[in-house]
C-alpha cells in the first residue's frame, strides 16, 4: 500500500495522544502520581493537541474535507465512522477530567468516573483505528489479530514515553511511571515482533490463479497490462518495497521505536535532573521517530490483492 503521510502522522500522533490520556487518567485516579496543576495543564493540552492535530491531518487527505462531518454517520457498519464518533466522544470525559485535575488538583468522586470514561473511550478509539485496517480482507498484513494489538500497545508505549517526560519535567516522577513504561515498552515490542513474524510467515493469501478464477489452469503470468502508464489502483495499492530496504527500516524502527527510548529512559531515570530530562526527551524523540518509521512500514509492507491483476505473484 502507498504510505500516505497524512495517515501516518495522524495515527502516530493521535495514538500517542490517546496513550498519554490513558496514562494521565490512570495515574491520576490511582494516585500513582501527584495530580499537579501544571502537569495537568501541559499534559492534557499536549494529549488533546496531538489527537486534534492527528484528526485534522487525516482530514487533509480527504477529497472533500468540508464534508468530513458525514463520516460520523455510518458507525453501524464502518470502523472509520466508529473511530470518528469515538474520537469526538473522548473529548468530553477528557476535558471534564482535565478541568477536575486542574481545578482541584486531585481526582475523586466524579473525577473517577471521568478518568474511567477517558480510559475506556481512548482505548475504544484506538481499537477502532486498528480495526479500520484489521477489517480489510484485501490486505493480509492488516487482516489479522495482531494489527489491533500493535495499535493499542503502540499507543500506550508512545503515550507512556511522553508521560515519563512530563513526570520528570514537573518533578512528580515515581517508580510506577518507570515500571509502567517498561511494561508498555515490552508489550509494544512483543506485539510488533509477533506481527512481523506473522506477516513474514503467513502462507499466500490469494494466488493470482484465484484472482482470475482460473485455479487448475496452471501458473498465471501477466503479459500485457490494461494500461501502459500507472493508474489510480496501481499508484494507491501498488507500492512495493525492496526486501533489503525493508529490513533496514525494521531495524531503524526497532532501535528508534523501542531500544533507544527504553534504554535511555531507564538508564537516566535515577540520574541528575538535567540528564533525566534529556534522557526522557531523547526517549520521546526517538520513540516518535521510530513510531513514524514503524507506521510507514505498516503501509509499505502491506500487499493488496488488487496487485495480483498487475503482475504480483502473491498477496
Amino acid at each position: 500500500m502507498h504510505p500516505a503521510y497524512s495517515v501516518i502522522v495522524f495515527t502516530t500522533f493521535s495514538g500517542a495522544g490517546y496513550g498519554l490520556l490513558v496514562c494521565l487518567a490512570l495515574f491520576g485516579m490511582t494516585g500513582g502520581i501527584e495530580a499537579e496543576r501544571w502537569l495537568g495543564i501541559t499534559g492534557f493540552t499536549l494529549a488533546l493537541t496531538m489527537i486534534t492535530g492527528g484528526l485534522l491531518s487525516s482530514a487533509l487527505h480527504l477529497g472533500h474535507p468540508e464534508r468530513a462531518w458525514r463520516a460520523l454517520s455510518q458507525w453501524r457498519s464502518s470502523w472509520l465512522s466508529r473511530e470518528g464518533v469515538l474520537a469526538l466522544a473522548t473529548y468530553l470525559p477528557a476535558l471534564l477530567l482535565a478541568t477536575n485535575w486542574i481545578v482541584f488538583e486531585e481526582i475523586e468522586g466524579a473525577g473517577y468516573l471521568f478518568a474511567m470514561m477517558t480510559i475506556v473511550f481512548s482505548v475504544l478509539t484506538v481499537i477502532s483505528t486498528g480495526m479500520i485496517y484489521a477489517s480489510l480482507r484485501t490486505i493480509r498484513a492488516w487482516f489479522n489479530p495482531h494489527t489491533v494489538r500493535v495499535y493499542l500497545s503502540f499507543s500506550l508505549w508512545t503515550g507512556a514515553l511522553w508521560f515519563n517526560l512530563l513526570a520528570h519535567l514537573f518533578g512528580v516522577h515515581t517508580p510506577w511511571v518507570g515500571v509502567f513504561m517498561v511494561v508498555a515498552g515490552v508489550l509494544a515490542l512483543f506485539f510488533k515482533r509477533k506481527y512481523w513474524i506473522f506477516i513474514d510467515t503467513h502462507p499466500v493469501w490469494v494466488p493470482p490463479e484465484s484472482a482470475l478464477g482460473l485455479e487448475g489452469a496452471g501458473p498465471v503470468r501477466q503479459i500485457a497490462p490494461p494500461n501502459t502508464q500507472e493508474n489510480y489502483v496501481q499508484k494507491e495499492m501498488g507500492y512495493r518495497i525492496a526486501r533489503k530496504h525493508m529490513y533496514s527500516l525494521r531495524r531503524t524502527a526497532f532501535f528508534g521505536y523501542f531500544l533507544i527510548p527504553w534504554g535511555v529512559a531507564l538508564l537516566t531515570i535515577e540520574s541528575e535532573p538535567v540528564l533525566r530530562y534529556a534522557g526522557a526527551f531523547v526517549a520521546v524523540f526517538a520513540g516518535m521517530v521510530g513510531a513514524l518509521v514503524e507506521r510507514w512500514l505498516f503501509f509499505a509492507e502491506a500487499k493488496h490483492t488488487a496487485n495480483l491483476y498487475y503482475g504480483a505473484e502473491s498477496s
Binding site: 500500500m1 487527505h61 480527504l62 477529497g63 472533500h64 474535507p65 464534508r67 468530513a68 458525514r70 463520516a71 464502518s78 472509520l80 479500520i132 480489510l136 480482507r137 484485501t138 490486505i139 490469494v206 493508474n231 489510480y232 489502483v233 494507491e236 495499492m237 493488496h304 490483492t305 488488487a306 496487485n307 491483476y309 498487475y310
Partner: peptide, 27 residues
C-alpha cells in the same frame, strides 16, 4: 454528492474495481 474521498472503499475492494477521481475528489 456526499463522498468525502477517503478512498477506504477502494482499499476494501479486492478486485481493484474502484477508481478515484482526483479532480472531483470523489470515488
Amino acid at each position: 454528492d456526499i463522498c468525502i474521498g477517503c478512498k477506504l472503499c477502494s482499499w476494501a475492494c479486492p478486485y481493484g474495481a474502484r477508481e478515484y477521481d482526483y479532480d472531483a475528489g470523489v470515488m
